[in-house]
Nucleic acid binder design. Structure first.
Lengths: 214, 214
DNA sequence: CGGCTCACCCTACCAAGGTAGGGTTACAAT
DNA sequence: ATTGTAACCCTACCTTGGTAGGGTGAGCCG
């Protein structure tokens, strides 16, 4: 029996899927890589009798969809390692992926060499989760849980300050970091409060809980 | 500056602590290893100015103590990787350890070579958690990412108030809802702040972002 | 040009959050 | 019987957050 090295890439962005597919072929020695941009197509492409050696799954849609897909994939392909990718650096995402039983997690912006390493680990039956640096934590955005400042009707500066509020910074620190007076920060904060229809910064944070900025 | 490779081992079994300490010295190249068998002694041995390169923590007693200690260690030694060990193979344990923010987890009965590998990973800033067996997976999947008040070392009342803080309630409203004075609420809040090693309620919220209580 | 918004500055004021230092009760452990 | 801890109360004090009501200069638009 010929054991071809095959993979299935699931990502809603065709370009990304193509890019990853190509990378697996050229740098990881895969013989065949299928690329899927629609969850509907996943099951058509999977032949349970000869499952892929690896599944790469983007963590893009509202949590449920990708996690649910992950669960289904695990059930139908019990012996296939699943690598989940995300542009979102949030710890919570990785935790959920971990808890749901993926075999690995990697950030999209990670260097190619790291990617190769992770893939080879998964293929050898290991699990692999990334370290979270402080920078990673800050780089945000996964499509559904992200909100832009302009979507909230905020000015550029207000958006900048909103970001710092969400990190828990007090006005004084925001002022220092932006090299403006604390009073000016307060005025920007007041502007944000009015725009968002809330009474204080704590409500801003709880209102945007689970979402990410910019 | 001379950067010695130092470690702190926390285990209530003296023999185990000695064994692990010796192993770190002989097989992992540590220059100095402190061994503690009593949680009371932990803080005497830790010099925050020159923190250890690694902390090895046994998950021994009833959940509370070790997780609480873990939280405190993270607060005081933000840059030191913490490896939690356990003789208990239950997935839930690892899950909790992961959620509470340890950098790695390993079973005591694991082979020495694995131990070496895990330690070197942690020292290079990575996180490392063990693979899950199929039996363990089932229990893991159903578990949520939650943190209980007692795991944070909080009293019952403090936990109750923490929940309201996370909902964005101001002290006044908390007081009304619990039918106690606002001052008492403030004192509970202060207690929570100290336990969690932060300076104000906003930091509580940002610190627990994404986690659920109770 | 005038009218507009945005970013920035100021003083002054008040409310909310948090600390310090007192104290009382209840209840469990030594 | 004493110690310890949790929950509750108080006054007093300081810091932070937010509002109100002033003002300036830069830039855009009709």
């Amino acid at each position: 029996m010929t054991t071809l090295k095959t993979a299935l890439v699931i990502d809603d962005h065709p370009l990304v899927a193509r890019g990853i597919g190509g990378f697996l072929r050229s740098h990881c020695g895969f013989d065949e890589v299928d690329e899927v941009t629609d969850t509907e197509d996943v099951w058509r492409l999977i032949d349970v009798a000869s499952p892929p050696s690896l599944v790469v799954l983007d963590f893009w849609l509202s949590n449920n969809a990708s996690l649910q897909l992950l669960v289904e994939l695990k059930a139908k392909l019990p012996n296939t390692p699943i690598l989940v990718m995300s542009a979102d650096g949030d710890m919570v995402v990785q935790q959920k992926v971990f808890a749901t039983g993926a075999h690995g997690f990697i950030h999209k912006q990670e260097a190619g060499s790291v990617f190769v390493e992770v893939v080879s680990k998964l293929l050898s039956g290991k699990r692999c989760f990334e370290s979270l640096t402080k920078e990673n934590l800050r780089t945000a955005q996964s499509k559904e849980l992200y909100v832009t400042a302009s979507e909230l009707g905020l000015t550029e500066r207000q958006g900048e300050i909103l970001g710092m509020i969400l990190k828990g910074f007090p006005n004084k620190r925001i002022a220092q970091q932006l090299s403006i007076s604390e009073q000016t920060v307060k005025e920007h904060v007041s502007g944000i409060l009015i725009r968002m229809g809330v009474g204080n910064r704590v409500e801003i944070i709880t209102k945007l809980r689970g979402k990410r900025l910019e």
